[in-house]
């Protein structure tokens, strides 16, 4: 995983609540056996006017001009601003894969669904929970003729942007450490092989039926 470095990026405002992972990446694209290449089909049913299927040349498809991702102001956006309970529904990691492949590194919302939230960190995406009023303010600022740019500093845990106070945010210390250092969870867990073996030995004696 790439290290998460401080960056400044355009904010794309998606003002909908309960955006589910079926909307983020529709099921027909889940048939891929690869991890990459989902970006062009991010929000496929909202983004294009036709029905998308794997293998289509997405550059030739009719875009939905009313969908925010297609707005000229937000091209190249690295930060997605959205509303409550983002990423609900299916556990498909194809959702963060699609967001990451498109270029999003940070998602700002008042709340996230648990599995999606967790999946983001495994893919170098930082999901940040903000207060409702902060989210409302950012929606107002990002809807103007000029796109809003925010600087995300994970080390300092701050968001800063022109015309606003610096906004601090919370992040789990372990997740922060992994993102900043680009660490792989499996490698970290395998540092504790002895603990796992000891647990298994203990458990095997108290609940042997689990090991048959």
């Amino acid at each position: 995983m790439e290290k998460f470095e401080t960056f400044t990026g355009i904010v794309c405002p998606l003002d909908r609540s309960n955006v589910d992972t079926d909307a983020i990446i529709p099921k027909q694209f889940l048939k891929s056996i690869k991890r990459s290449g989902f970006g062009p089909n991010l929000f496929d049913e909202w983004r294009y006017l036709d029905h998308g299927e794997p293998g289509m040349d997405n550059s030739q498809r009719p875009l939905n001009p009313d969908f925010v991702l297609n707005d000229a102001r937000y091209q190249g956006a690295k930060i997605l601003l959205t509303s409550k309970n983002f990423g609900c529904g299916s556990s498909r990691e194809h959702a963060p894969w699609a967001l990451e492949d498109y270029g999003f590194r940070v998602i700002l919302a008042p709340s996230f669904a648990d599995i999606f939230f967790n999946n983001c960190f495994k893919n170098g995406i930082l999901p940040i929970v903000l207060k409702e009023e902060t989210v409302d303010e950012l929606f107002a600022l990002s809807g103007g003729p000029q796109a809003l740019e925010i600087t995300v500093d994970l080390q300092a845990q701050t968001l800063s942007y022109a015309g606003g106070e610096t906004v601090p945010f919370d992040v789990d210390p372990f997740r922060k450490h992994c993102l900043l250092n680009g660490l792989d969870d499996i490698g970290l867990t395998l540092e504790h092989v002895d603990d796992i073996r000891a647990y298994e030995a203990r458990r095997r004696s108290e609940a042997p039926w689990l090991f048959t």
Partner: peptide, 23 residues
């Protein structure tokens, strides 16, 4: 019992464990 993403599928396969916080 709970659902996981593909990175955790790999993690569970490789280590028989998952990194979690108590809900």
């Amino acid at each position: 019992a709970f659902g996981i993403g593909t990175s955790e599928v790999e993690h569970a396969l490789a280590t028989q464990c998952l990194i979690q916080k108590k809900s």
